[in-house]
C-alpha cells in the first residue's frame, strides 16, 4: 500500500524554485533516503510533507490525506526529527518524554508504557534523570529521535539525523534506525552516502529542486555505471538526469 504519494509538488520562493515539481510514491514500511547537495531541496520537501511549509504547487498525500486540504489529519500520522537537536534543554530525559507524550494526548498509563518502550529502544534508561542540555551530542540526538516516535507515527521524517555526530554515535544511531525499519515508513535525508547505502530500501537523488533519480542501490549503480552510492551520487549531481 502507498504511504506517500507526491504529485508535481513544488515550492517557489521569489527568485528560485526550491522544489521544482517532484512526483514520487513511497510504499508503507519503506525506508526511503533522499540525497542531494546543500540547497537541493531535501529539507524543503520534508517540511512540506510534514505540513511545516505550504507548497506553492502540486500536492502530496500521506496515507491518503492531503497535506494541503487536511494538514491537521496529516499531523496525526507523521512526526519528524530535524537536523538540529530539538529537545527541551532544562528538562530531564524523563520529563522530555513525558512532556511530548502528554502533548500528543497520551494518558498517564500510556505515557508510562511509552517511556518503557523508548528507554528500551534507545537505551535511554541510564540517563533518564539527566537534564537534556547535560547530555552529549549523540545522546541528545538519540533523545530527539526518540521523541519523534512517541506519537507512534505512521510516517517518520528524519532530516539529517546523524549530522555532526562522531562516527561511533553515528553507527549507534544507524542500529536504532535499522531496528525501526518495517514498523513505519521512514524518509531519511542525509549527506552521508554510506548511511543511505546501509539503511535504505530505495534512494532518491535531488538536484536544484528536481528529483534526478529514484530507485534501489542496484538500480542506481546500473544507471550510473558506478559501484558505490557516493560515486553514483557525484555522477548524478555533477551530470545529467538519469531518471527513467
Amino acid at each position: 500500500m502507498t504511504a506517500i504519494k507526491i504529485t508535481d509538488l513544488r515550492k517557489d520562493y521569489k527568485d528560485k524554485a526550491a522544489v521544482d515539481g517532484i512526483s514520487l510514491e513511497i510504499e508503507e514500511g519503506e525506508l526511503f533516503s533522499l540525497l542531494g547537495v546543500n540547497g537541493a531541496g531535501k529539507t524543503t520537501t520534508v517540511k512540506m510533507l510534514s505540513t511545516l511549509t505550504r507548497p506553492t504547487g502540486g500536492d502530496a498525500f500521506i496515507l491518503g490525506r492531503s497535506i494541503i486540504t487536511e494538514p491537521n489529519k496529516v499531523k496525526e500520522l507523521v512526526d519528524l526529527s530535524m537536523q538540529e537537536t530539538a529537545v527541551a534543554r532544562n528538562l530531564t530525559v524523563e520529563e522530555n518524554v513525558e512532556f511530548y507524550a502528554r502533548l500528543n494526548g497520551l494518558n498517564k498509563t500510556e505515557t508510562g508504557e511509552v517511556m518503557e518502550r523508548v528507554y528500551r529502544a534507545f537505551d535511554l534508561g541510564a540517563v533518564k534523570n539527566k537534564r537534556a542540555q547535560k547530555l552529549s551530542g549523540g545522546w541528545q540526538r538519540k533523545l530527539s529521535i526518540a521523541l519523534a516516535l512517541i506519537s507512534r507515527p505512521k510516517v517518520l521524517f528524519l532530516d539529517e539525523p546523524t549530522l555532526g555526530l562522531d562516527v561511533i554515535a553515528r553507527r549507534e544511531l544507524w542500529k536504532t534506525i535499522s531496528a525501526l525499519k518495517g514498523g513505519m515508513t521512514i524518509i531519511l535525508t542525509t549527506h552521508y552516502m554510506e548511511e543511505a547505502e546501509a539503511l535504505s530500501d530505495r534512494i532518491g537523488v535531488m538536484k536544484d529542486g528536481r528529483l534526478m533519480f529514484v530507485g534501489t542501490k542496484e538500480e542506481l549503480f546500473a544507471a550510473t555505471g558506478k559501484q558505490n552510492v557516493e560515486d553514483a551520487f557525484i555522477e548524478i549531481s555533477a551530470g545529467g538526469d538519469l531518471n527513467a
Binding site: 510534514s50 505540513t51 511545516l52 491537521n72 499531523k75 496525526e76 507523521v78 512526526d79 519528524l80 526529527s81 530535524m82 537536523q83 538540529e84 537537536t85 530539538a86 529537545v87 527541551a88 534543554r89 511530548y100 502533548l103 500528543n104 494526548g105 530527539s144 521523541l147 519523534a148 506519537s151
Partner: peptide, 17 residues
C-alpha cells in the same frame, strides 16, 4: 527565541498543538 533556534518549536509545530 531559544526554542526557535534549537528547532524545538519546529518539532512542536508538527504536533497536534
Amino acid at each position: 527565541s531559544l526554542d526557535r533556534a534549537s528547532a524545538f518549536l519546529t518539532r512542536l509545530f508538527v504536533s497536534k498543538a
